[in-house]
Design a protein around this nucleic acid. Sequence first.
DNA 1: CCGACCGGGTCATCGATAGC
DNA 2: GCTATCGATGACCCGGTCGG
Length: 300
Amino acid sequence: MKEYIKSSVGQPINFHSGGQFITTENWTHMKRNIDIFVVIINLNETLYIEQDEKRYTVLPGEILFLVPGQLHVGFNPSPIGTSYYWLHFTFPNNYSLLTRKMMDSEVTSMRSNLLPINNHSCSTVLLPIHTKPREVERIHILCKQLFDVAKANYYNTYNAHYLATSLLIEISEQTIYHYKTVSLDTAAERKVEMIKEWIRIHVFKKISVTMIAEEFQYNSDYLSRIFKQATGYNIQEYIHRMKISKAKELLMNTNVTVKGIAITLGLNDEKYFMRLFKKYEQMTPTEFRKAYFRMPMNNV
DNA sequence: CCGACCGGGTCATCGATAGC
DNA sequence: GCTATCGATGACCCGGTCGG
């Protein structure tokens, strides 16, 4: 049984159409076999859709992907007031369907990347065919933005393609995060994953271990220990590496001054930032910028 | 504006230890 | 096994100063 879709979004997906569907009478999904992907983000009432001989009961707040080339049919009527967001799209590259077991190994290989490796880039999205996202509000906001832009008649039509791509990435990230969290063995490991996520989100703020300990209701000393035990890295070092990794991105892609970057990263002393950068990169921020700035452009 | 060096207060980490 | 605390120690952090 295939439960996940895997593809690359190194290029944006092709957004065809989308909107909000609201029923005005009892409604059953039509029987059809179409050649593009459909995402259904359910808002109200329950949907009953069969795909590839599997019956999905989609509750409010849940998402269902319909895969091209498969027969879809409603197997039960939904009442008046049923409503959902829908999107039609195709991937620019090949996609594959994964079983749960294949998904396990995908996520495991991602987990082996404990640290934010320099310029590490991943363009893969992993999308569950049927899921209940953790933060459905974020997905709703992206949908609204997308539909707003789609009907705005921009000259540049890629805005909608990129926003739709962004939506898939959001769903993918929530999936991976959830997957990692539930598949971990001990409560401590789960906690550490949450802490790493927290650090990732707050990388542009001033972060201290004490702060994280308060956030997660732990003794700061104890927190350091479980983090070290789970990842092999000091939590402080992890925070620093996260920040340095962001700093390198900014040095390469922007003209923001070293001081400006330090402030952006929540380090209000650029001298300290410089020292930290040198410790991890064996060169000063300016040297790094001179060495790498414009390199991507010259390759075009 | 950038980078190097210094001084000292603060904080994170480690080993040992203890209660649950 | 999980969590917290204590004391020691070294790393971190921040301000100042100076030279290019």
